[in-house]
Design a protein around this nucleic acid. Structure first.
Lengths: 198, 198, 198, 198
DNA sequence: AGTTAAGCGAGACGGTACGTCGTGTCTTGTG
DNA sequence: CACAAGACACGACGTACCGTCTCGCTTAACT
């Protein structure tokens, strides 16, 4: 996101890493409190204890800042490999549900989606976001296929769509709860072979 | 959406119906061109060939106008009842895919989702939007259950989530195509009893 | 200074004359309090009870506003014609000394002079300012010449320079007082024929 | 103007004399090109090929730098003493007219005048400037008085005002030329005893 | 036919935020 | 130490947008 310094020798006063941190965390805070639109750069600067100049030196616009802040707040999923599809899914989905709880990263998702239509950099940030959620699940399913826990013809891509899709849909549109019960019913439908008990 | 005139006798010059049309269609145009945020009311007024007064006389805010414009552009689904689950689904899903094509109503969805967090009227507009899409499918599935085409224990609500959810997810997040092939694979997964050929 | 409306029919809401007044007088106040440079447009707007938009709709820049405000604050001198050079001078110079007292119009003069070098509109405002002070004195002297109170060969232009020049010089550069005593000594030097008693 | 180094032993790298020169001459250039207000310290530093640190190590503010630069460019008048008032005046006024030609030192004068109201150091710089011009003329007149070329009751202070005043006034306000012709007419008016021929 | 209440276009207005620029200070690495 | 480079806090600038307002003019329905 931020241009790297290609010069061999670093000249001038270096950018304050602390300022970066303060700006990014203040951004996440404010965005979750009042939303992107109602977050003002003056208030942000005051909150972060930083001048507007310092913000605009790093990001060309409010939009770009927010995107960066949110992208940076996306932690990759822990690698999961228990040897059992059932257990892998429990771990992954537990984490996924956790992340779908209300909070800045989720309340902002719709905004990203919208602007992604118009701005390529937002688009790629969003792609990254999506990938980070899909990839672990895809890997879990592929490994299960290798182990024979899943039919060799199973369409893992489609399965991912059918697990993450409904969850996302509930979260964003119907606002019905995404809880353990729902998860179980969902898995029973799209992965009947799993035969879960709970 | 628009406050009705409760007065028995209409006094003064009546509102121009032409103005309504010009405003609404200019709104749809602009929103799809530049997005809600970047659409300014001054530009909108100029584009519609109408004064700002005329707009604000009809809607209390930009937000309300956009919601109305988009709501108005949502046609309810035709009632579908062929007596066969397979045929009903073909018709409904054909229409659904049609509506998921890029266009203002869809590109705007994310914005509505975001604003819904903060504004109750947007929230209810969004609920209506969601309902219009879920209801016909739910009805189709319930009727199939009545006819015995579906297991009596089938969780129709979950089925709706698992059909509309993945489609929405693809449309908004992964941007992979939502075509007939995908539909068939999806149905084969969540409604295996259907045993489609294609 | 402000463009006149050439349209026959006045369209839209007319500019508030009250706003004009409030802005101009607040400008004069602030400029005299803190000087042009330290006067901020935000503070000015607040002081005038007006929004910045309203100011910038009327003048393109802070500079232009200040010039206009000061130009507008220059009252022409009352017409003086007592029939006696001595009495005419007393009246005119009394008024002149009055106007040279510390206050916005004078503290600002140097700023105008400086910017006049670079900006033609400032230049013409300054010319007007100068003219308003020279003209009455020139007229008084010419009339005295007609009446024979002054030598027919008297160089009235030069006399004006030699009366206003030293006063201005004292006011701006040496800061010595410009009082009645100084006036009398000055007149005795450049208009010895007057033979004043005081 | 520049704080002197009171340390007995000079430690570390000595200040670059070249930097001083480059800064001062760049200041004069820029001030005459765009005026004090529009001269930015960043641009100045770039133009002088020097860093801002180096400038601010020498002068505490932009104002102080400009004053210093201009003061330094004011050469004292050559001592004039021909033994004849007429000839002394010719020499002095010739030099004065020369110095009143357009150029940085003059175009900047108004700025100094204005700032002098607010800043004591500017005030004293301006006083110095004024003194440098008045003193030689005052001396010339006093000597003439001693020699009997001028009346013993002549008010030399007033005479200085009446010579420099009109010239300054023309230069700054009316912008009429200050040439030999004007000088002669001026002297004929305020020093009639001189009885010049030209 | 005249009155009258409301609609309408034009554009001014208050308020809020934006992103930029200028000053003077500070913090690096290099001579 | 001086110096170059450039980051930083602070504060002002001039612009854009929203939603309200105030004009003069127009349009029907009601008297």
């Amino acid at each position: 996101m931020q241009y790297s310094n290609s010069r061999t020798t670093q000249r001038g006063r270096p950018r304050s890493a602390e300022a970066d941190d303060k700006i990014l965390s203040a951004t996440l805070d404010l965005v979750s409190e009042v939303g992107i639109h109602r977050m003002s750069m003056d208030v942000l600067a005051a909150r972060a204890g930083v001048s507007k100049t310092t913000i605009y030196r790093r990001w060309p616009s409010k939009e770009a800042l927010v995107i960066h802040a949110l992208s940076a707040s996306i932690r990759p999923f822990d690698h999961v490999d228990t040897g059992s599809l059932q257990k892998d899914l429990d771990l992954y989905l537990g984490e996924l549900v956790q992340r779908f709880k209300p909070g800045p990263a989720n309340d902002i998702l719709p905004h990203l989606i919208e602007t992604a239509n118009l701005d390529a950099s937002v688009r790629s940030a969003l792609d990254e976001f999506v990938k980070i959620r899909r990839l672990p699940l895809h890997t879990i399913l592929e490994r299960a296929k290798d182990r024979g826990e899943l039919d060799q013809n199973a369409d893992t891509g489609l399965l991912v769509d059918c697990i993450i899709g409904p969850i996302t849909y509930r979260r964003l549109l119907t606002r019905e709860p995404v809880d353990t019960d729902f998860m179980n019913r969902l898995l029973a439908l799209v992965l009947p072979s799993l035969d879960r008990d709970s």
